[in-house]
Amino acid sequence: MRSVTWNPEIYGRYADERSRPYIDLTSRIAAQSPARVADLGCGSGSLTGILGERWPDARVVGTDSSPEMVAQAPTDLPGNVTITLQDINEFDATGYDVIVSNAALQWVPNHRELIDGWAETMTPGAWIAWQVPGNFDAPSHALMRELAESSTWRDRVGGVLRGPEGVDDPAHYAARLQAHGFDIDAWETTYIHVLTGEDPVLGWVRGTGLRPVLDVLSEADSLEFEQEYSARLREAYPSTAAGTLFPFRRVFCVGRKNE
């Protein structure tokens, strides 16, 4: 899959909603005194600071492949936290006690093989935890793919979007870690976000799922695509005076390598 251009400002508009899965994921890691911690696909690293505060004696590194995101790293991160530019495929798990990846692996087609490699390299007692969106069958994504593959848009954006095959369910991820000698904790959660404003679901996906489409279209074509897409979204996610309900399923897997 081609690299995606990220806009930190757009992505950050729903910072509270996007931070909750990170907290739910990392709260299940029971490591006591890790020496080295990695946060893969950390974006700007605004959440990586949570790991630095939790384990103040650890060296915590957050990595991301987006220069735009890394450039927005907070200046008030704990002193034991470093945010650096790195492709997730280049990460070497050797010597790490905790590896975290939140809402990043779905962008990496070979992430299952990467997990296998990391799990094999990690030492007994080490922890790995990741979360990926599990909503690729939801209207927000199904309608996007449907429009992208229509006769109007197929030649311009056909094939750039991910489908449900891009991620696994909790059982498959759990089985993958078990095969490498891990005790596992895997689950899924559907968050019901209450979004406000005009076309709020469009505003949400502009920061994530819609990025591959916007990357390959001109400004004029992007506007036209969004107009068609937003009309479909308004029907699928009707707004009310109290806001727009936006269900979002996420898949979690946490494991500790057996001693």
Rank of each mutant, 00 (worst) to 15 (best):
T240H: 01
D16N: 12
L40R: 03
T94N: 07
A35Y: 08
G166V: 10
S150L: 13
E235P: 00
G255N: 04
V201P: 00
L25E: 02
C253T: 15
H111A: 07
D24W: 00
G158M: 09
S239F: 03
I192V: 15
A104N: 01
E228K: 10
A126W: 02
E120H: 09
P21M: 08
H180Q: 07
L161Y: 09
S65A: 15
L195R: 02
E235A: 15
N110D: 13
Q72E: 14
R20M: 12
W130A: 03
I128P: 01
V81R: 00
Q131N: 13
V201D: 01
D39E: 14
V213C: 02
V70S: 09
A148S: 05
S218T: 15
I99A: 08
A71M: 06
F136N: 03
R234F: 00
W118A: 11
P56W: 05
H180W: 03
L223H: 10
E53P: 02
R154Y: 04
R249E: 04
A179Y: 01
R112I: 14
L40H: 03
G117S: 11
V254I: 11
G207T: 03
S44K: 03
R112N: 09
R2A: 12
L202I: 05
A103G: 05
A142C: 02
P78M: 07
P139Q: 12
W130E: 00
V251K: 00
A138P: 03
Q178N: 13
T196D: 11
A138D: 13
N7K: 08
E259M: 04
L114E: 02
D64L: 05
A231M: 13
R54H: 08
L245V: 10
G41R: 02
G12Y: 08
I23T: 14
L245W: 06
A138Y: 06
D168E: 15
G41C: 05
R250A: 12
W55Y: 14
S66L: 03
T196E: 11
A179E: 13
R154M: 04
V157R: 08
S19N: 11
I88H: 03
L214V: 02
V132Q: 07
I184W: 03
S19L: 13
L105N: 02
Y173W: 05
I50C: 08
W118S: 06
T84I: 11
F91Y: 02
S151A: 15
Q86R: 14
A220M: 10
P67A: 12
S65N: 13
P238D: 09
W55H: 05
R59M: 05
V100K: 04
T5V: 12
M122N: 01
L51S: 04
A103C: 11
L233D: 01
L114I: 09
Y14I: 12
